[in-house]
């Protein structure tokens, strides 16, 4: 496990602890804690864990190593620092929130930089990812495109949020930005990583490649409709986007349902090689 993975993972766990504490406060009636809770939940806990898994799994699925590990470690350290700064600003210095959100957006862009460096400059590994399931290679390819698009949604969503918080955009764009981060980044990565990981862990293939393509297309179109509709106040467009997103999630559940059944083979051993454990 690389240093970057550990740092992302530990930051995510710390954010989970903080978000949980704020959550209990919200549930006890302290509504002033709502916004800090949502931020730490989305951009601390969930984003941190997604990045931890991605930085470990991407080299395995692409059969390449990061060319500049220091860049990955830098991203992890900056992520920890900006998450802490944003939480502190939310709770103690609200006037600084647009700045800390902007810093989080800039840090989020480092994920794309690292992914591009892996894809275009990464050192090829001698062995490729273990693929024994039918059509899984095609699913991996389609899912990788989806996770790349999802990776772009994080810095864009945070940049929109920073602009709305600084008063550069109408207040409606705050909700639009949070939905871009949730539906584009978080849900996009959950779906993309799900298509990579769930079949491998269960030994059962995805239902069909065509279904995966349809689901990801519906997902992308839904995000493209919902976000501007929320920002520019277009209720009819929002309805269409919402229904399309509901369809996309139903299709995802249908596609991965076989993976949730009792595994066909015993669980992969906890040892290097079950899911490409390196370093």
């Amino acid at each position: 496990m690389s240093t970057a993975t550990r740092v992302f993972g530990l930051t995510a766990l710390a954010a989970l602890a903080g978000a949980t504490a704020l959550h209990v406060g919200v549930l006890a009636g302290e509504q002033v804690l709502w916004a800090p809770m949502v931020r730490l939940l989305l951009f601390g806990w969930i984003t941190g864990f997604i990045l931890a898994v991605s930085y470990h799994a991407m080299p395995a699925f692409l059969a390449r190593d990061f060319p500049w590990p220091a860049l990955s470690t830098s991203h992890a350290v900056l992520f920890a620092l900006t998450t802490a700064a944003a939480t502190a600003a939310d709770l103690a210095r609200p006037t600084l929130v647009p700045w800390t959100t902007g810093l989080q957006a800039a840090t989020g862009a480092l994920f794309l930089v690292n992914v591009m460096s892996l894809v275009f400059h990464g050192r090829r590994r001698s062995t490729g990812p273990s693929v024994t399931l039918p059509a899984q290679r095609q699913v991996d390819l389609i899912a990788s495109r989806a996770t790349s698009a999802a990776g772009a949604a994080l810095p864009v969503g945070l940049a929109l949020l920073a602009a709305a918080e600084a008063g550069r955009l109408a207040p409606e764009w705050r909700l639009a930005a949070v939905h871009l981060a949730t539906l584009g980044w978080v849900l996009g990565m959950v779906v993309g990583v799900g298509y990579h990981v769930l079949p491998r862990t269960s030994g059962r293939p995805i239902r069909s490649v065509g279904l995966v393509r349809l689901q990801l297309t519906a997902h992308a179109l839904a995000v493209a409709l919902i976000v501007p509709a929320l920002g520019w106040g277009r209720p009819n467009v929002f309805v269409a986007g919402g229904l399309l997103m509901a369809l996309a999630m139903v299709l995802f559940a249908v596609a991965v349902r076989p993976s949730l059944a009792v595994p066909r083979r015993p669980d992969a051993p906890i040892a290097p090689g079950s899911i490409e454990v390196r370093r």
Binding site: M1, V53, V193, V197, L198, T201, I270, I275, V277
Partner: peptide
């Protein structure tokens, strides 16, 4: 996913 996959990442 984490309870399944992280032990395999860590080899423990």
């Amino acid at each position: 996913v984490g309870l399944f996959i992280v032990p395999r990442f860590a080899g423990r």
